[in-house]
Write a protein that binds this DNA or RNA. Structure first.
Lengths: 191, 191
DNA sequence: AATATAAGTGAATAAAAATTCATTTTAGCT
DNA sequence: AGCTAAAATGAATTTTTATTCACTTATATT
């Protein structure tokens, strides 16, 4: 046989895990839960991952990669800064809203014994494009001249909170509400 | 005998739990860990709390209460809005920086099966003064006319992120850095 | 000092969860 | 169709963790 381990099944496992974390938190998620939610046997999880630790690290890495990848989709580095920034901001917001469970999972992982230093390191490296973006804004004197890391944390933090707030309040983010919120963020960062 | 269960011991248990959550996450904290960290026997935990669930809920409630209590310390409702707002903002920031482990714990609790609806409800009720504060700012046309809940989430969210960023980067928040960050927040919220 | 009761202990038990593995099913290949 | 090896299974096992409880220690009251 040539068939290699099914990517579709890994996705299925990941989806199940995300769903459970959003519902019960990382601490309340067992391998039994995951398998049941994914509709497979517990043993099957161990065909794809050697341990719960590995499963969680793999999920963390996959989430991180996918979110960064989506963030810059359609971004034209040559267009003026503000519209470009806005484009990316909207990409991120859309992603976070559509993948709420992922946001929750990532937040929970931040302080957890599961994520290894190595996984963390690799995630950090993926932040480089965001740093470049903000640096450009600072160079063009459109963005406040404050530590870039701080500005990024601020920007991402506000989005996280906005997404949480939106999700729990049940308010739908129509175009005008999104605009207002972007202005909130832009007013904070702009020089 | 009249002596009632020692408040000092409860504090000791709480401190131990917070330390562990910050280090290993909520999911990695066992009753055994807590007792060892607190320097008491495992059984003693059950003298003070009927279960792990109860312990965590009690800690959550205590943290929430203490943070709200500190936030408004020294606030003069009669002084102009911006300095008053700034005063509270600084109270919160100071509190979060000095009680980093608590912030981590609260964040982790947000999505966890431990916190009961009742505990959550009571925590929410403590937010009323923040709502009043923002409402006042809106009435005086100093704060953007956006959903109050959103503005509060935004304000708190940015502080959380700032605190995380500060904690991990190892950068000390000197006076000027704090000022810049307050401006960041104020620029976002101001009308 | 004697007594009574609360507080504290930690080994023993029970409950929950992770992991293994002998076995069965599935899918590609000739 | 028959063969082969990967994939999947889930009951059994191991490991971890929460909880109990018979007992000891500390403390207030008389």
């Amino acid at each position: 046989m040539v068939k290699l381990k099914d990517d579709k099944k890994i996705t299925q496992i990941f989806q199940a895990a995300l769903k459970l974390v959003a519902k019960k938190g990382l601490s309340g998620m067992t391998m039994g839960d995951i398998s049941k939610e994914a509709g497979i046997a517990t043993g099957t999880l161990y065909v794809y991952f050697t341990s719960k630790d590995e499963l969680i690290n793999a999920l963390f890495a996959a989430c991180r990669e996918s979110s960064v990848q989506v963030s810059f989709k359609g971004y034209q580095p040559h267009t003026p800064f503000k519209p470009g920034f806005r484009h990316i901001w909207l990409n991120i917001l859309r992603y976070k809203l559509q993948n709420f469970e992922e946001s929750v999972f990532m937040e929970q992982c931040y302080h957890s014994p599961f994520i290894t230093a190595d996984t963390r390191e690799k995630a950090q490296q993926l932040s480089a494009p965001f740093y470049q973006l903000i640096e450009r804004g600072k160079k063009e004197q459109l963005i406040k001249n404050i530590d870039t890391g701080l500005l990024i944390t601020f920007m991402i933090g506000t989005m996280n909170e906005l997404v949480k707030q939106t999700h729990y309040s049940g308010i739908t983010l129509n175009r005008s509400r999104v605009n207002t919120t972007f202005d909130l963020c832009w007013d904070a960062l702009k020089a």
